[in-house]
Design a binder for these strands. Structure first.
Lengths: 146, 146
DNA sequence: GTTTTAATTTAGATTATTTCTAAATTGCCT
DNA sequence: AGGCAATTTAGAAATAATCTAAATTAAAAC
């Protein structure tokens, strides 16, 4: 277990006024060190089924609410998560569900513009935004040609 | 029943090489005349529970696959749908789930740019894209202040 | 206008995902 | 160290979506 990682996670949690509970430290550390876009189920198993599923759900909701992680609504109807490093979005394979990161330097700028526009038009106060693109990954392009 | 509407729906279905079955005509007509961002459940009830739920699911998937309608992955973990008129995206209230349209003239242009970028970076072939913004609607802003 | 055929619909069961409840535990402040 | 609000837990319950195999149907072929 990487103590240094958990320390980093603890600081991050406190920054956002979240209690640094053991389950949260483990889950956040996992996300900080794995960029496999896991679901609740994947995290639950990766952490040896030691943390209650409801807690995994609660934690991921809390983390994505403050923006520490990104929520990805996948085509497979389960939600995936990704630790936020720099502005990016995701492209998801319609065939196999694979998720790839797309780095887009101006992404937060564009996001902000959209948010502002949405607020002006609707009177909402915007917080998080979600962009996902669907498509076919290189592997499935080949598979489906046959 | 608006025959004219169903005729329009039939033409639209044929344009995309989709069989114009009775369930599809009813569902598409409903979507073309209601902009309440319904879920499967809402459509199922609006059409008097006469169309099997599985068919509603199948139809909505088929329609969104070809782009006649837009799929909205709402925060409430059910999927909402919207007939596509012009390029727009959605803002969703985190508190009450209300969905509002945001018209954005350049939206498809920006979408295309993102898609191109994603394709170059990942080797995927991009098809549809989804953007949702979360926030607080005017009503809930007032409610939560109390 | 029949016939044919592939696609679609159906009922109902099944699976998967997420939320809820009430009791027990735990982090953090004083 | 003690107190309290927030969080976690086990397990049940609710909700959403998919699957199966048989019946039906739209549209092309004759």
């Amino acid at each position: 277990m990487d103590t240094n990682l958990e320390e980093k996670a603890e600081i991050l949690l406190h920054t956002y006024n979240l209690k640094a509970t053991k389950p949260r430290l483990k889950i956040l550390s996992y996300l900080m060190s794995h960029h496999n876009h896991p679901t609740v189920e994947m995290i639950y198993h990766a952490l040896n089924e030691e943390i209650n599923r409801a807690t995994v759900y609660n934690t991921l909701n809390a983390l994505s609410e403050v923006g520490i992680i990104i929520e990805i609504k996948n085509g497979d109807n389960s939600t995936h998560y990704d630790y936020f490093v720099k502005p990016h979005f995701h492209i998801i394979c319609k065939n196999c569900g694979k998720i790839a990161d797309v780095i887009y330097p101006n992404f937060d700028q564009i996001e902000n513009e959209m948010r502002k526009n949405a607020e002006e038009q609707t009177g909402f106060i915007a917080s998080t935004s979600h962009l996902e693109i669907y498509g076919l990954c290189p592997n499935c392009q080949i598979k489906l040609k046959k």
